[in-house]
Design a protein around this nucleic acid. Structure first.
Length: 501
RNA sequence: GAUUCCGUAGCUCAGCUGGUAGAGCACUUGACUUUUAAUCAAGUGGCCUCGGGUUCGAAUCCCGACGGAAUCACCA
């Protein structure tokens, strides 16, 4: 539909392109040697020594065009920012007519000296220029105003979320703030790699297509391998393969990659999302808490230059030590009830008392989880390590060294959301088998999310996995918190959308 | 999956008590050699998401479909 509506505009631009080619202009040349970025010029130009920018070559997309007869001002945008260009018929008498055939959206290269206009704007003089790409489709361009304090105000900005997500490339061109979020995302992930690499932990890749899925409680996407004629699943977690590598003798391995879960979508869930998991041999969850806290603080500092985070109206200060509180203590704090050691029937009664909706067929794990999600999670805005989970909830975590019925596990919560999950990893093969058998019972009782028994994984554990700490971090959620976004769609370049008819 | 709200020009929106479509920006033409939301003048541009219904008449009311957003449910 929009094809037809914009066809007049497209037709006109195609005519211009034709016209340019008749003038002997190649509208799609092969390269351009740029010497500077807009930012380098904007940040470093000084009126005392304009000769430093006597000869610059810059390239970018035309974002604003102010024609004034024999003189033309335009603003181009490159990856770093925007800069004004000034053209004048006197400067380029033979080529000036070409400029009349340019449009907003075209990509050009310009060579010339830098100067400051009467009104004080740093500007590149178009002593020579070249069209680098003619744009055929018009952009949803918004006028940009700079107020007295230097703040940029976009008027009637391209804001339709559906169109923005479906045409992300347009969104990125037209909404510079969006680009910042993704630049930070990239920075956060590369700093995370640097952090791990500098400790000697190794980045690895493990299968995404698996014949048995595991490592988390979730429904998978399933597919089919034609040659082998077997069902296969897209992975829901990284854990079980990374642990096999610990068995194989690597002492620190991590992977940053997509997981896939066939479940609901909302502002915190996308069917494919990025997970980081790391396993370090000979360490336990106490060590891992220290490491996680240091990692999060390091990343926040790199991304924002400080330790204050803001999402929606809520501010979180990371500079204090993260709170560490046991799971049952938090339940007690927010419900007044001590649920530790209670039977399933007692828990069912307690859930009802608390007004938490559960079914009598639900497993003990599920009831506990429901109570925690409803009564506790929202209170955990400040970074909090929730420690020492009930054993039933954690089939891959090692039993607590001093308290029966608990495991050595923590989850890091911020802004009421889980960002990290960690255990002292279970490496006793007898216990691991028993836990899987427990899961199988839950599954038989109707818990769809209970884990499958993975004989091959058990075999690896039987060969012997060293004691280890493991940590998983949901990268998308972490990026949301570190960039102040409240929807996962705003930290994914291409969030899942229903296909257009 | 449920509920609520939304879908009008390329973009941002108005039009809502039913009478056949409007603004700003973008685009076109003209003027303009330091402008910057450039300005001034004159224009072009719509199957009002789609399909049914009510009505003499529907962008407007009703039903359905398709997309989107929010909340909930599901979901470590």
């Amino acid at each position: 539909m929009s094809e037809n509506n914009s066809s007049e505009l497209v037709k006109r631009r195609l005519e211009e392109l034709d016209h340019l080619e008749k003038m002997g202009v190649n509208a799609y040349p092969y390269s351009f040697d740029k010497t500077h970025t807009s930012q380098e010029i904007n940040d470093n130009y000084s009126d005392e020594s304009p000769e430093l920018f006597e000869k610059v070559a810059i390239a970018g997309r035309i974002m604003a065009l102010r024609r004034m007869g024999k003189s033309t001002f335009l603003t181009i945008q490159d990856q770093q920012g925007r800069i004004q260009i000034w053209f004048n018929q006197k400067l380029t008498p033979e080529k000036y007519d070409q400029i009349k055939l340019w449009d907003i959206g075209d990509i050009i290269g310009v060579k010339g000296p830098t100067f400051r206009t009467k009104t004080g704007e740093i500007t590149v003089k178009g002593a020579d220029f070249e069209l680098l790409t003619k744009s055929i489709k018009p952009l949803p361009i918004a006028k940009e105003e700079v107020d007295d304090e230097g703040n940029k105000i976009l008027h009637d900005a391209f804001s339709d979320k559906e169109l923005r997500y479906r045409n992300r490339y347009t969104d990125l061109i037209v909404n510079p703030k969006i680009r910042e979020v993704f630049t930070k995302r990239s920075l956060i992930i590369s700093e995370m790699r640097r952090y791990f690499d500098s400790n000697g932990w190794m980045e690895v890749e493990t299968p995404i297509l698996q014949s048995i899925y595991g490592g988390a409680a979730a429904r998978p996407f399933s597919t089919h391998h034609n040659t082998l004629d077997i069902s296969m699943y897209m992975r829901i977690a990284l854990e079980l393969y990374l642990k096999r590598l610990l068995v194989g003798g690597f002492e620190g391995v991590y992977e940053i990659s997509k997981n896939f879960r066939n479940e609901g979508m909302d502002k915190n869930h996308n069917p494919e999302f990025t997970m980081m998991e790391i396993y370090v041999a000979y360490k336990d969850y106490n060590w891992c808490m220290d490491m996680t806290e240091d990692l999060i603080k390091t990343l926040a500092n790199k991304a924002n230059g400080n330790l204050i985070l803001n999402v929606d109206e809520i501010e979180v200060d990371l500079s204090e030590s993260f709170e560490r509180t046991p799971w049952f203590a938090l339940i007690k704090k927010y419900t007044g009830m001590d649920l530790f050691g209670k039977s399933k029937d007692e828990l069912l009664g307690d859930a009802k008392t608390l007004g938490v909706h559960v079914e009598s067929t639900d497993s003990k794990t599920k009831i506990l989880d429901e109570i925690f999600s409803e009564k506790v999670e929202n209170n955990l805005q400040k970074p909090t390590f929730v420690t020492d989970f009930p054993l039933e909830m954690s089939p891959l975590a090692k039993k607590h060294r001093s308290t029966e019925g608990l495991v050595e596990r923590f989850e890091l919560y911020m802004f009421g959301q889980e960002v990290g999950n960690s255990f002292s990893e279970l490496n006793d093969p007898r216990d691991q088998r028993a836990r899987f058998e427990e899961q199988a019972k839950d599954k038989a009782a109707g818990d769809e999310d209970a884990m499958m028994l993975d004989e091959d994984f058990l075999n690896a554990i039987e060969v012997g996995m060293p004691p280890a700490a493991g940590l998983g971090i949901g990268i998308d959620r972490l990026v949301m918190m570190l960039t102040g976004q409240s929807s996962i769609r705003d930290v994914l370049f291409f969030p899942q959308m229903k296909p257009r008819k």
